[in-house]
Design a binder for these strands. Sequence first.
RNA 1: GGUGGGGUGGCCGAGCAGGCUUAAGGCACUCGCCUGCUAAGCGAGUAGAGUGGCAGAAACCGCUCUCGAGGGUUCGAAUCCCUCCCCCACCGCCA
Length: 428
Amino acid sequence: MTLLDLKWIRENEEEVRLMLEHRGANFPLDELLKLDAVRREKLTAVEALKARRNDGSKLVGSLKREGKDASALLDELRKLDEEIGNLDAEVSSIQGKIDELLLQIPNRVHASVPVGRDEEENVVVRTWGDPPNFDFEPKPHWDLGTTLDIMDFERGVSLAQSRFTVLKGMGARMERALIQFMLDLHTTEHGYVEIEPPFLVNTATMRGTGQLPKFAEELYKCADDDLWLIPTAEVPLTNMHAGEILSEDRLPIYYTAYTPCFRREAGSHGRDVRGMLRQHQFDKVELVKICHPEKSYDELERLTRNAEKVLQLLELPYRVICLCSGDMGFAASKTYDIEVWLPSQGKYREISSCSNCEDFQARRINTRFRPRDGGRPRFVHTLNGSGIAIGRCLIAVMENYQRADGSIAVPDALVPYMGGIREIGPLR
RNA sequence: GGUGGGGUGGCCGAGCAGGCUUAAGGCACUCGCCUGCUAAGCGAGUAGAGUGGCAGAAACCGCUCUCGAGGGUUCGAAUCCCUCCCCCACCGCCA
């Protein structure tokens, strides 16, 4: 990992302080700055000694070649070596502490983000469609799914745990149809390249997008291998060009992928326990962009619209909100959440989250581009968004398209993907 | 899992009995010269990161580090030793 961001922090101390305050984050900035000062002081000292050693070593070489005695010089160099060893150890110990701290500092907040403490202060940006009017009491998806025998919550639990669900028959079919529908839309209409990434990634990859080290308790880890189950396809997609210097002509890069996502939901005990709104395993189609730093906020608007398009084509009412500074994720500089209408709850629930991470992840994974006019490589900006969460979309379709008799109409856009089936009724 | 061969700059590829290598040479690219145009030819240049010189930025100059990763030996490591990762070939196992 590069430490360029440290230089920026050093030079923009007050901005960092303000950001931490707006996020409500607890971070020992003074300690970091002090460590940085000490590190640079020691580094300068040890580098001067190394320069002397290098000169001396060369001299030894030429003395020996001429057959002269070099023992006095060798004694001196041996002493130098010891000093260097000690100082080096100090520097790397300080460096280790700095690296640890740097991994825990959240991303900067974009100027357009509302300052606020928690989700109460998020701002509604726009609303699309109208919640349907039912002349009967709309049922929650778990009732619909159980009655139609397309969702089996009990067997999900018996096979695995709570927060696992078995989809069956037309339920499984619609899950698959939604995946196909969304991938087709994003690849053919929106210009994304379809990727099928690994569903397990190593620690370095997990660290690159910011899941580690702070959020290890949210992840499933393999006991015998350095592998973690991905909590979102954002992780493998954003890491695709880790360590690379791309030519500017390759930007922007758009990737989309369908993957299952695995989350321990460690901090969510008791929330959304019924139904399949909050699962340990869920399907998602993800959108990722890797782009030029000056274009990233335009790209964020477009990416959000790309996700919204899914709901528009499915004719599901939704709204877009802009998260306030205190409610944003660790890696994001700006985030729009898309919330879909759920009739059984009478409210909007998150179905997509679209973020611009600016260069936060790019620094961690070291993805840069070489500017067209030459010059030093610069960090790219990375963006990600759900395009969209499949399980929650299935729920939204079921609840919004339910009829009085408990059957479910298939949205027109989905009919071709359902083999022409227009409604899901009770199994005969 | 076993055996053997590898991992060097944007790419190819030498170096691997430790010190005249500040990583040879080639390709590609950039600039200049030459030239009706193009090609060829000639000349020069072309990695990244950290840090210092400046109050700061750019430019420039210096130093340190980087030859898959991390340790070790040594005054000195691309070169020797150890561990790990990855690639290739064959064998075993396997959807």
